[in-house]
Design a protein around this nucleic acid. Sequence first.
DNA 1: TTGTAGGCGTTATCAG
DNA 2: CTGATAACGCCTACAA
Lengths: 337, 337
Amino acid sequence: MVTIKAVAERCGCSPATVSKALNGAPDVSHEMVLKIRAVAAELGYIPNAAARALKTSRTYSFGLLFRENSKKGLAHEFFSLMLNGFKRRAEELGYDISFVSRRLGDQYYTYAEHAKYRHFDGIAIITIDYEDPQVRELVESGVPTVTVDEEFGGCGCVLSDNVQGVRDLVDYVYGLGHRRIAFIHGEDNMVSRVRVGAFQESCRERGVDIPEEYLVEGRFHDPDGSGEITRQLLALETPPTCIFYPDDVSYLGGLQVITEMGLSVPEDVSAVGYDGIGLAQQIRPRLTTLRQNADLMGAQTAEELSRAVREGRDYLPKRIVIPGKLIPGETVKDLRT
Amino acid sequence: MVTIKAVAERCGCSPATVSKALNGAPDVSHEMVLKIRAVAAELGYIPNAAARALKTSRTYSFGLLFRENSKKGLAHEFFSLMLNGFKRRAEELGYDISFVSRRLGDQYYTYAEHAKYRHFDGIAIITIDYEDPQVRELVESGVPTVTVDEEFGGCGCVLSDNVQGVRDLVDYVYGLGHRRIAFIHGEDNMVSRVRVGAFQESCRERGVDIPEEYLVEGRFHDPDGSGEITRQLLALETPPTCIFYPDDVSYLGGLQVITEMGLSVPEDVSAVGYDGIGLAQQIRPRLTTLRQNADLMGAQTAEELSRAVREGRDYLPKRIVIPGKLIPGETVKDLRT
DNA sequence: TTGTAGGCGTTATCAG
DNA sequence: CTGATAACGCCTACAA
């Protein structure tokens, strides 16, 4: 292994000088810097992250806590895109990414212990379940943390603008004449609560009455569950003319049931999704949905985290809200004609 | 920070003894071990990964090179599921996972340099482009490496059984009476070549003649491209009765075009996909496809990598082939009646 | 401008 | 069975 010492010997100087030169310290002569750089390159010198971390207690790596309750794990286009954006931006900012887990071989760590073990400079939490006490422990462990899609424990957070998103969707279907609107929402978490609130509020503002049975708790990414709820909704004596699904994938479950019942979208019943994953544009009829800017959310998470690390004790957690975009499709019928 | 030294003082013994006790060395008295464990737990001692890595030159972390040429990055269900399996198994085996990248802040590293910098114990490569010279450099850098979906540079590798997969699909559609079978394959890489070979061979074995224009190069995960090719195929004077798509997502592009042309699946033209992502079961008609066992592929990658690390110079690279499973859907018409 | 020396937290060796 | 000591590779006062 080529160490700083080897470079120093080859240069006829001390290891300290090499270290300084390579790290851009001001007190090394220009010639020396050039020489050292040349020799380092020639020998193929690469610093040792562990030694550096030990000395500086900075690892230049972010821990990523990524957890979903479905079995699909990462296989969730919205999360994947976010992860992608996070990774890209983090790398640009000079951070590597590792996953935070609870288990390392036989040892069982808590998230917090694992983070301590690896000495992450910062931690991003993307999970659907902020109730988990381990998540709380992690947040309280003192490492700079940014949460996604939930305000939690006073950390910085990056949120999708669910209020505006749902409002835009309501506006859209209202504009096309819909008044009997059903809303299937996901598990009880902050995202669901915010969306439900925004839905109720914007309906109320428009004088649209939403009977209790139109507001149903389903689950995210559960086509079968949403299908079942769709069946119940359409069996009501006054069925809705439009159904909001918790996400695009769930819509597929609804679509299936609708088709099985001999009905079709949008002729007999209209539908909107949420997320705006690629699928929405690849099926016919194209799904009307709200595209969340997952990539940007990920990137901003990295950004905010790096700020938290940089500013240390002075860091003032920010709440970053990322707007989405309504993607009109072909699943909402115009009832005005 | 609670160090081994703090524990030692509290125990009235030396740091060396603490280290040994905590690492299960045989030459420490049982009572001492118990005492040290108790004190360590009480103080909340967590070892420091960097110090350990520096001393032992083992990091207990795997580097993951994950690259796709599409802009979607990780947002690809098949890859995500693989990553998931890899992560789970790696953690069970005692390894953390970080991404291998080419860039850390202002510094530009090659993959190999980055891997060296972080001292990964092993590296998993999941990419579509093994031509990249940087990938070659990485593989040749001497760190234990396992490649996925391609045999490369004499590393261990985990492959999907594309030969049997394509054969199963051909068998299936042949059994339903199809003789005019078109095959759209992905970019030229090992997976594509193997699939094309298997397709041609199994067709030949059954006496099915495949005219040149039935074998078309498309791209993976490119619905639009596949749609265009579908259009061309159906415009032939003797159009195929069944089209093989490079993957499930690409099928959607084909389906679109078919529908636009006023035709339908499977009445007018049959289709099969590849991968077996969730989508395939959630659309109607259900897509006939070949499910690749992505989770197992990921897990086996971790397994093989850990073996490579463990066995060091004695390691004999293995070629692990993971079978898939045909998922019959409703997109292949029975032509025998 | 350069060099010396100490130490980050841990483990390994070897002596007691 | 236990402990002193050195070393892993690097950075950083501080001294020269």
